[in-house]
Amino acid sequence: MEILEFENVSVVYPGNVEALKKVSLTIKEGEFVVIVGLSGAGKSTLLRTVNRLVEPTEGIIRIGGRDITKLNKKELKKMRAQIGMIFQNFNLVNRSRVVRNVLAGRLSYVPTWRTMLGMFPLKDKEIALSALERVRIGEKANVRADHLSGGQQQRVGIARALAQQPQIILADEPVASLDPPTSHAVMKDLRRINKEDNITTLVNLHFIDLAQEYGERIIGLRDGELVFDGPASEVDEGVFEEIYGRSITDDDLRGGTQVAPREEG
């Protein structure tokens, strides 16, 4: 069943910068899609149109068959609550404890008067803590976010998205700030959650080896245009060179061991 549909979606930024050019694609429920392309190719923009952090200039985006480009403010918030997002720089509140950061994923499900007083229902606290356990850092709940290593911080980011109990997870360059072994660990976590919970997952990557290893389906963007869409098994170096518009270099590879240490730092 299709969960996400793009129909001729374009984004033009102020100053006439065309970030997306008439992109059309369909994503099925439970798919694990990796979007590749050079920086500036429109990966981030594409991801952000799904939850309308970036407003599409034209075209239609449907989630579960419903056009989301026309939603009013209230409906938009409700829709965003169903979509988890993971960021390159984790976007955690450094000074807050891990559990606070994860609870932030429950904000849109809890009445505002409760969140203002910090009185989360027991059910939501349980959801937050089990989200942490699922990324194997349950024991860090009471630690300040900035006392964790980069990999652990990104797992808090994943836990925050999981706490939303989302239908879709958007991950924008989730491993770009991490070292190779940690990158593999985080990608494995994303893949595992995708399989276990059947959450449709879209991941932006610019490392082609990670894309090949973890992606089921690969979408290639070049200058805001969709230039490739197919299963990962069909992708080889030639396809990447086509997407990148140049030959592949070592910088395009994350490399590193694929067996990540269970706990780092």
């Binding site: 952090l53 938009l76 918030k77 609550a81 979509i83 976007n91 955690l92 849109s108 925050r160």
Partner: peptide
């Protein structure tokens, strides 16, 4: 840091 603001906006917080 504007990151957390973006993260919460993305998850539908008011």
């Amino acid at each position: 840091d504007r990151g957390p603001i973006e993260a919460l906006e993305a998850s539908g917080s008011n």
